[in-house]
Write a protein that binds this DNA or RNA. Structure first.
Lengths: 191, 191, 191, 191
DNA sequence: TGTTAAGCGAGACGGTACGTCTGGTCTTACT
DNA sequence: AGTAAGACCAGACGTACCGTCTCGCTTAACA
């Protein structure tokens, strides 16, 4: 059996650090985050941060895991009409991404994913979240509303990828985009 | 008329700076770039950099404009079979992106786009490059090989977006992916 | 000829740093000095300190050279009676060394000399200062008041050494000490 | 009656700590000593050090008390000729102090004395050690070889003080010094 | 043909943050 | 209760770059 000695890790410190990270990330964005700032805001020594995380990207990865960064407002609607629900979800997402705070958060997450593979992987895993559209697509395919060979995961990935790229490329807002993207990835609507 | 006085801008310095930027970007990635390092490598005073560029992201934007960052090997093949050409182009792109240097460069570009809107916009503009698939898609649509209402620009954007997201999310390599993505954005192949 | 380039060293910064060093040294002693504290007090970046000095001991050495640390109140009296003058100088010195601030400064200088050979050497050089007793001893020897073979420099060194050692060893104050030390190093007084 | 409870102080820990202190002091000098380093080398928790000593200077004071720092090779020779013995002892001492390790140890002791009054006092007490010259001087005075009023303790203190100051001031080695110092403090040799 | 304004390489400046190290305190589990 | 271990808050260390600001020099266009 193990039986480690020494004081156990302080949960209070862990939480204070993640809270401070999430707060500063939201306030100032990924690249104005500093470990010193986080430690100061959390009321913690810098060493306590470095003891448990390798740097700011790892902190962001953990915040992500705890759901402290992504707003919970992206639940998928359910009116029975998959294409309509998807379009409406996309318009909501576009709205968030185009808001000043939303785009900062979004680009900051991209920057963090750039530096840290855990952040990337966790973003990927969150695609499977049932609150997102993946599970709904799966149902639709099983009930015959979508062609049987539709690769669900590719669809999720492609939609998010398109949003990511548009945010990076500063593609201007376009009212018809959501419908076109749905048509593109699900195939044209049956007449 | 104006007629400025004093020495004109040194072309040698401009080129040396962009060369140094491209070299260091390739060697060490976007976030280990430093203006001091660039100036030193270019044999130039820091002020000469700051006189003409606002920071490292602007330098990258300029390098991009001069084609010093993207490898020229991504020309679109032309065998007459659009789907096959597109699949093969995608496989080549995947190969580059999965190589150790390629993925670094790719992610670094994403990071740069995160910080600087010009970088983003120039990445977007390069989608229209005739060496890429956009012009080929246009031809195919006009010759009736693709459905008439296919939104070409969305297709380009979506494909690149998918690649970007897979690079960020560290999605593992998958042999069948190119074909599936082509089917997804062009619609299933006619039998 | 050479012709250095770049901005010249800032005299204002140099002086501010030495002033801050001397002030903090007097306030808090050698081993509570910190480069950060000095830089902050001087209103200067840390790098400006490190650019010109290797560490705090080198700063002290320079302060010493500029006479910013030693009080100027140790001038040797001159009543015509060398032994009496010397005794009286020694009593004054003892008084300073036994005062709370004096002993701190004295021990701090010793600590600095411990770490940095320049500090040591400059302390040594200051023995030759004509305001101290060395030059007076020389006159006395030449005028026949002291034996001709008396090694003046050894005398100075020995007297200071005795004071140093008593300060280190916390030898308690002793009213008759000054006279005894004078007798010891000059030989017993003629009857 | 009292009857303390709990485990008694561990002698093994005490010895391990002092050994580690002495070893690290000799290896790296006083100001590279760290409590953490000592505790690690001794295989002991930091708290066990802090429980019994107030800091590194107190550790040095204790090592000194146990004779773990000063080499035992400074016994005073006895050829019957006091001046010759003293000169020869001084030359030996000079040799040690001028050796690379000796001077480091000597200056480290001075630095420790600077910080901690116990260290100072113990250095002072060690002057009375019969292996040093004080007891020999006393005998000589009693047997009439030295003038009756010679202040023995001042002599010891002055000699050591001179050596201390020469070490601090980096006075260069000088072949005739030992003889001159003996003449200085004992008075010129009788013809 | 000077004068003069801009560009240039160099590098010092006041700063921020880095990641590491140590100080001293405190909290565990073990003996 | 004392110990080995080690986490904690605090803060200095010396380094790397930031973006700005002189320097002394060079290079044209103006005068």
């Amino acid at each position: 059996m193990a039986g480690r000695r020494g004081a156990p890790r302080s949960e209070a410190a862990r939480v204070a650090i993640l809270d401070a990270t999430a707060a500063l990330f939201a306030e100032r964005g990924y690249d104005h985050l500093s470990i010193e700032g986080i430690a100061a805001r959390a009321g913690v020594g810098k060493q306590t941060v470095y003891r448990w995380w390798s740097g700011k990207s790892a902190l962001i990865a953990d915040c992500l895991l705890e759901g402290m960064l992504l707003p919970g407002t992206l639940d998928f609607p359910d009116t029975g009409d998959l294409r309509a629900d998807m379009t409406s979800w996309l318009k909501t997402a576009e709205g968030i991404i185009e808001s000043p705070t939303g785009v900062g958060l979004f680009r900051s997450l991209i920057a963090a994913a750039t530096e840290n593979e855990d952040v990337g992987r966790r973003l990927r895993e969150s695609l499977a979240d049932p609150r997102l559209f993946a599970s709904r697509l799966r149902e639709a395919r099983e009930s015959g509303d979508l062609r049987a060979d539709l690769p669900i995961e590719d669809v999720s990935e492609t939609i998010i990828g398109a949003l990511v790229f548009r945010a990076l490329a500063r593609t201007p807002s376009d009212p018809g985009y959501a419908e076109r993207l749905v048509d593109l990835v699900l195939g044209p609507a049956a007449s």
